[in-house]
């Protein structure tokens, strides 16, 4: 393995370990703007966005893991799964376009 690749993978692993900081830093904060589950409108009504899809690990957590420790573990699991899935899928896309290129080359 090339040294830069090895070093980048080590850095990724370190950031996966640190990833729960991403929720702990913002524990007492609300959602990002425009990413609320429901909105209390000035007229007193509550608006909820329509939902079309249920993700298996919503908000990078296992459903029901609410306290800081369990949510951090859920975040870790999500980081590992997410990084692995992202790398596999991008490798898959790149391999597919390589095939596409070699088909076009014929």
């Amino acid at each position: 393995m090339e040294p830069w690749l090895k070093r980048t993978l080590v850095a990724l692993a370190v950031f996966i370990v640190l990833s729960p900081l991403g929720i702990l830093f913002t524990w007492d904060y609300g959602d990002a703007w425009g990413e609320w589950g429901e909105v209390k409108l000035p007229n007193g009504k509550v608006w909820t966005p329509k939902s079309y899809f249920n993700a298996p690990l919503p908000d990078y957590n296992v459903e029901g893991w609410e306290d800081k420790l369990m949510a951090s573990i859920g975040y870790w699991i999500s980081a590992v799964i997410g990084v692995a899935a992202t790398m596999l899928m991008s490798l898959g896309v790149v391999k597919t376009i390589e095939l596409w290129r070699s088909e076009e080359g014929k």
Partner: peptide, 25 residues
């Protein structure tokens, strides 16, 4: 391999939420 690792870097940096002074992230 670089596309794959940079894609993962992008995924991971987006998990690091930072507090915005108005109470959002």
């Amino acid at each position: 391999p670089m596309i794959a690792v940079l894609s993962a870097v992008s995924f991971l940096v987006m998990m690091f939420n930072w507090p915005v002074p108005d109470g959002t992230t």
